[in-house]
Amino acid sequence: MASHPDESGKKLGMWLFLYTEIILFGGLFVLYAVYFSRYFGDFKESGKTLNRLIGLMNTVILLFSSFAVAAAVTAIQKKEKKIALTGLATATLCGLIFLVNKYFEWGHKIEAGIYPNSEKLVSGPHGQNMFFGLYYVITGLHGVHIIIGMTLLIISLVFVLEGKVTSERFALLENSGLYWHLVDLIWIFIFPLFYLII
């Protein structure tokens, strides 16, 4: 008897991994919440110095890229290979733009003397130091996830191109998509917590 690829098993495996990611970022958000309640004033002041426009732009970019990936997963099942490839390429490009924005954002802050263990943060208010420490750790870890997600999207793109991912067998594309959506999901919480504090 020929063995069938276990598509739902692969998806369950991916979700089990995503649960650990949720707990990982959940833990960091708890840390944020505890220090937020302790240094409310400092967090408010520090949040105001972040560029809301870049934060908003990156939110829209990630939301759109998530849509593009979801469309690619639909397209592969409808045997519309071209749309699937376009969706994946678009999402990867969005990821790249996101990282370029992040580069300028971090660069701007580092130039202003705000980076982990910098003179300005160490000698400044403790809450401000905590805020930017968490800012660099959480957005940095999220950035690493963007890079991993882009790698998965590119691998999926190549496999679709080569016909290894088809309407019969698309678990790789679907799981890469799930990972990308999770990265988007985490950003949905990062954006208000860091950029929109009044």
Binding site: E7, L63, F67, A71, T74, Q77, K78, S167, E168
Partner: peptide, 19 residues
């Protein structure tokens, strides 16, 4: 062995607009 339930592009786009 493979379920083929998918959402139409239009549905996905409305979700994007809602977001």
């Amino acid at each position: 062995t493979h379920h083929s339930h998918y959402l139409e592009y239009r549905t996905l786009f409305s979700i994007f607009l809602l977001l």
